[in-house]
Design a protein around this nucleic acid. Structure first.
Lengths: 337, 337
DNA sequence: TTGTATGCGTTATCAT
DNA sequence: ATGATAACGCATACAA
């Protein structure tokens, strides 16, 4: 491994001069810098992140906490998409990412301890149980934190605009003539609450009243529970003409149930999803859905965390809402009313 | 931050004694260890991974190279599942993982350089273009490497047994009475080659001849190309009675095409997928498919890499085939012939 | 059994 | 503009 010491020997300058030159210090003459940079690259020099960290207390490493209750972890379309852009955003800013967990080897660690152990400059938290004491400890620590899809006190949060999403869907459904709109929503989280708020608010504005039995709770990413809810809705004396699903993937459960009833989408019943994952766009009929902007969610999370890290003194936490977009498919029938 | 120096002061032992005690050195008396450990934990001591690394040249950090040609990156069911178990396997062995890329900030780096920069003890390579010079440089370097689903010279490879998978599917299809079996396969990779080999070998053994026009090339994870191939197959004078798809997800494209032709699965045409992702099991009819054992693939990759790292002298590279299992669904009709 | 001294590769302080 | 030196936190060879 070639170190600055080797470069120092090779070009006759002292170690400290080499270090300064490589860090582009104004103290060093342009010609000297030139020479040192050249020999460094010729010798294949690479800075040692660990040694640098030891001096500067900056690891250029971001921790990522990503554990969902369903244990599906990375196998969750929405979150793996967010993670992907998170990773790319961080990398383009010069940071690597490390997954944070609560035990490493057989040594139990809190999330906070793991972050300290790896000297993470900051952490991005997504998809976790925000009541977990370990998560709370981390958020309340001195480590800069950005949360995704959850507002925690005054730490920076990047939020998919679920209110606007539900609003856009309801408006769109309404325009197609539907008044009997059912909403199968996910388990009770802040995300769900905002979607419900957007749903009710928009219905009210449009002057349509939704009976309570049109609102069903299922679980995110779980076609089975959405299938059951669908069955209940289809069995009603006064069934809805359009069903909103917790997410595109869960819709598969509804789709099966609808087919089992001998009904066809969208002729007999209209549906919409949520998320806008790849799957939704390859199904036929194409699913009308609301695409969450996972690229921007991940990128903004990385950008804001880095900003918080690099301006620790002046950074002011903020909440950033990321809008998605309506993806118009063919799963809603235009009806008269 | 509390260091061994602080502990040293607090309990009156020297720094080196503390260090040895914390590392459970036999040199230190049991009572002393006890005391030191106790004060350390009371003071909330955490070892500093960077400092330790600087001395020991071991980072307990594994690099992961995960870039596929379709740029779908982490948004790929199969690979995100492998990654997930990779992560868990590594963590349970005391290693963290870091994504390797080819530029960090605006500094262009080769994969190898990135690994060195982060002092990765080893690297797991999956889902990349193995002709990329950067990948080749990394594999040929002194850094221990484990590849997934690709054999590269004599580095250790963890391989999903695609030959057995194709074999199992063909046998199963045959048992249901089918003789006209079409195979839509993915782009030409070693994975595809093995599946094709398994396919042909089994057909031969069973004494069925497959005309060339039953074999179509599509792309993995791309329903559109599989849809096109399906259309061609359905348009044949002598269409197949069963179609094998490159993967479960691609099957969606075939499914749409089949429905468009007014055909029904499995009554009019039988199908099988590959992968056994969650989606395949929630579709109706349930897709008959071959589940790749992603848990074991990821875990074995982590285990073997760690073994290679920790026994650098004695470790012998090997190839490990991981079998999957047939997932019997309802997408094949039993027919007379 | 415990302590002293040194160095890993880097940056920062202070001198020259 | 350049160089000598210390220090970051830890582990280890060697001394006691």
């Amino acid at each position: 491994m070639v170190t600055i010491k080797d470069i120092s020997k090779a070009c006759g300058y002292s170690v400290s001069t080499v270090s300064k030159a490589l860090n582009n210090s104004p103290e060093i003459g342009e010609r000297t810098k030139e020479l040192i940079r050249k020999t460094a690259s010729e010798m294949g020099y690479l800075p040692n992140a660990a040694a640098r960290l030891l001096k500067t207390n900056r690891s250029n490493n971001i921790g990522v906490l990503f554990v969902d209750e369903m244990q599906s972890g990375l196998r969750h379309d929405y979150f793996s998409a967010v993670l992907n852009s998170l990773k790319e955003g961080a990398e383009s800013l010069g940071y690597d990412i490390t997954f944070i967990s609560h035990n490493i080897g057989n040594v139990p660690m809190t999330y906070y301890e793991h972050c300290k152990y790896r000297n993470c400059d900051g952490v991005i938290i997504a998809c976790v149980d925000f009541n977990d004491p370990g998560v709370i400890e981390l958020i309340n620590s001195e480590i800069p934190v950005v949360t995704i899809d959850h507002i925690f006190n005054d730490s920076t949060a990047i939020l998919s605009d679920n209110l606007k999403g539900a609003e856009a869907l309801v408006n769109h459904i309404y325009e197609f003539g539907h008044r009997k709109i059912a909403f199968i929503h996910g388990e009770n989280t802040s995300v769900t609450q905002r979607r419900l708020a957007g749903f009710y608010k928009t219905c009210q504005k449009l002057g349509i009243e939704i009976p309570d039995y049109y609102i069903k709770e299922a679980r995110y990413h779980d076609p089975r529970s959405s299938g059951l809810a669908t069955r209940e809705l289809l069995g009603l004396k006064d069934p809805p003409t359009c069903i909103m699903y917790p997410d595109d993937f869960s819709f598969i459960g509804g789709m099966n149930e609808i087919e089992k009833h001998g009904l066809s989408i969208p002729d007999d019943i209209s549906v919409v999803g949520y998320d806008g994952i790849y799957l939704s766009q390859v199904l036929r009929p194409r699913l009308t859905t609301y695409r969450q902007n996972t690229e921007e969610l991940g990128r903004k999370a990385a950008e804001n965390l880095v900003e918080a890290i690099e301006n620790k003194k002046t950074y002011i936490p903020k909440q950033i809402w990321v809008e998605g977009e309506l993806l118009v498919g063919d799963s809603i029938k235009r009806i008269e009313f």
